[in-house]
Amino acid sequence: MKVDGKVGRISVGKGTDNPLRLDPQGGLMVAGYGGEYAEAALAGRLFSVANQAAVATTANVATTWTGLGVGNPAGSGKNLIIHEFGYSVIAVPPAETTIGLMSGPLGDMAQALTAKCAMNGAGTSIAHCDDGATVGTPVLERIFATQAQPANTAVQISINPIIYKLHGSLIIPQGRAALSYTYALSAACASFYFLWEEVTV
């Protein structure tokens, strides 16, 4: 079956039928609409979690880790598709450090923090969200920001969102976890958040 479209802009009213529109090279003209995560949110598959207060972070790939993590317990029957990871400073940091994202075995991560369904009441997460656990040795996977240590208030008045949009480029299978990473030890000065989707394996 051959499907044809028509080249050139048209102007039509609501309720009219019209041919599909093509550009002069034959490409189908498509207008995006809606949020890319709206369908998953409406279906109750989209979840987030955030530190509720500034959290201390361990240095590098420590197995006695603290920060923010999202774990997928063995036998969950789900994959966790990570869409976003965000970071924000709450108080003057005591140390400078790179900020990144690592993954590793789940270890003893528990549901210490409650995952929030993006559509309130529409779904229940299987994730183990925790701000500290003994995990299997993680591996650093992504680098994306720096935390510094200004000594006074004569610095930036505000900072743009420090959000790493992974767009699903990290999938956490059963028995694994995505974990916040700081190269250097840091006392409680920052909070993290994750946004993810849970799909059947």
């Binding site: 529109r21 498509v30 709206a38 994959n79 650093l140 680098i143 480029s169």
Partner: peptide, 30 residues
Amino acid sequence: SDTGGGLLAQVYGGKYAEATRAGRMFCIAN
């Protein structure tokens, strides 16, 4: 379609999720 004749498409999910799930996506860090 919209009133200009453009097909309306809802992009959904992460743009790298399909490649990731298929085992084609990789990363490395210092």
